[in-house]
Nucleic acid binder design. Sequence first.
DNA 1: GCAATTTACTTTTTT
DNA 2: AGTAAATTGC
Length: 728
Amino acid sequence: MNLDNLNPQQKEAVITTEGPVLVVAGAGSGKTLVLTYRIAYLISLGISPSSILALTFTNKAANEMKERIRKLVGKRADYIYMGTFHSIFARILRQESNLLGYTRDFSIYDTDDSENVIKAILKDFNLSENHFNPRFLQNAFSKVKNKSVTNEYEIEKTLGNQNKKLVELFYEYNRRLKQSNAMDFDDLLIKPIELFSNYLDLLEEYRERFNYILVDEYQDTNIAQYRLLKLLVNQNRNICCVGDDAQSIYKWRGAEVRNILDFHKDFPETKIIRLEQNYRSTKSILAVADSVIKNNVFQIPKTLWTSNESGEHVKIIMCYDERDESNFVSRKISELLYSNEYQPKDIAILYRTNSQSRNFEESLIKSSIPYIIVGGVEFYKRKEVKDLLAYLKLIVNPKDDESFLRIVNFPARGIGEISIATLKSIARIKEKSLFQAISDLLENNEVNDRIKKNFKLFHDLIIKYQSLLSQSNFYETTKAFVDEIGLLQIYKEEGTEESLQRYDNIIQLLNSIQDFQSINPDKQLSDYLSEVSLLADVDNWEDRKNSVVLMTLHSAKGLEFKVVFIVGCEEGLLPLKRDGMIEDIEEERRLFYVGCTRAMKELFLTYARNRNRFGNSFPQIQSRFIEEVDKKFTKLEATPLAEIYMKKKSEMRSIIVDDYSQINEFDDDIIENTREIRPGTFVLHDVFGKGRVIYSEGYGDHQKVIVEFKSGIKKHLMVKYAKLKVIK
DNA sequence: GCAATTTACTTTTTT
DNA sequence: AGTAAATTGC
């Protein structure tokens, strides 16, 4: 194998195949390259691909890596065990499920499902949700599992509050999941630990199989994952972990940077390799990122350097408000696209919270810039999608109470609150799942016939499709099922924009089932459901679409773009403040660092003077991270609106100190004016006819635009003289 | 039991 | 401001 295009450290990381290796890889230092080459190299040495276990952070990363390895070693790449911790161990758990008292068709509950289970428990225990916040409990339970603590005292300590009640609820929660033949995300990590600790011969089997273990994004593994790794590593101790403590951004989810620091304690013979040359970014971008991250006290000292050119200055832009901010970004993107230096897919807009995407969506539409939002209300969390999936889960796993409750009366079939309460009490007495308790309800003389009839219909429906599923392929069965309950018809008849969207989503879901079946002809419906539950937002993003990408800073981890906009760089937003508290300032700083280091050529940092939150506008202060940036590498700018606002504000201050009403009136005027003619606007010109504005600069009498007319010619015009009329 | 209206809550970040 | 939950009226 040819390793000539690797630098000495990268090469060492590739060819040190035996024994524990820790690769401390700075941002953009070719970490993915090293992992792909390392795996390909192992295979070229004659090592069986199926003895390689490669754990990544997202499915997307796994697929990309597999694709790249395939290019190097061909078909053999298909046999590598590669995927996220969750998906790999879900697969193993399905195989060994009976040892743990689950069936192979167990359901996977997402965070919302878990929260619903907790709500149901609180109700049954007569506890107020005000006193026991379900979301808090869900979070706390997850923490216990992430830390993989098992003894009661430790559980109590982790749950906090010295509250025995919480421990009781925790046990009840797990009991109910087990009874529903369901696992939550964390179970997918701790159940394997349980499995391997109880069945040592089985552990030995897996240890032998996975002779080479590789872990990507190691800085974001939690204690449970680390324990799992330690269990699986065999006497050869061929484990290679790649990570960067500066990019650890999932501490809130239980990730432990200590896993990096402590690695050599468990593996004293570890070879530590540092990758410090950055191949991705310009000097300016790297310098900006570095000047901020060095304010963190807790970090492994390292010097990331690059031989790339200095490049453009990093731009810091002050905006008036969030709409001005999104308009600026759209304007700038039009400009970048117009220069023909960049394509839409080269550009990313990164923000701290999903809710920030809305304004950008609006302004990008107005400017006719193709875009794609990664995340937000994810596809698989939408009501209609979850409903259909709940039906399928119930058909596959009749013990799944959560799915049962979700769809038992949707579409409406006359099974209301009272009917369900009756069924619940029967289920509790008989110690059966809700679905299984239906047959008991039907034989119960105290239940009236109307209720019985409704349950009977529902029961027969599910039974029918259970048997259909065993007879024909699951896509056909699902399709027939959707037709029978008239799901598509319901949304079609409603006819609102929202329900048509839902219609499309159901179609899309059916298509994805069909695709899954044709790609994996030997797999079952439960495999599909499992895969779908473990998809991340980024996994669904097809970058071939050539669109500007909008996503959270978290989702951007591991990706790179030629141009990056980090928006909303304001105190309270980035770093994010909640309940008046900033959770963990160093983690927020690392998040900012991750954002900056995604950029290859150009980086824009924007902030707004005012921002709407919960319907009210609040004055904002620029982020401390912007203060920390070494200004030698930046250029400070302001949007026209922000400039006028600042000027006006200082003038006003000298005249009337407290009367802000005049500022607001003034603001409305200028906002209206600059909004009218902007990139994307269609205009009519006396001489040139119809055209579209593709670039705009300046404001008022100084506003200049570039218009592309129908004839194809582009004109630079001063709005003041051009007498443009806005059309549509 | 169901649809329509009112109220409450939301903005962390995700497998 | 926008959405989900809760409450009311039929």
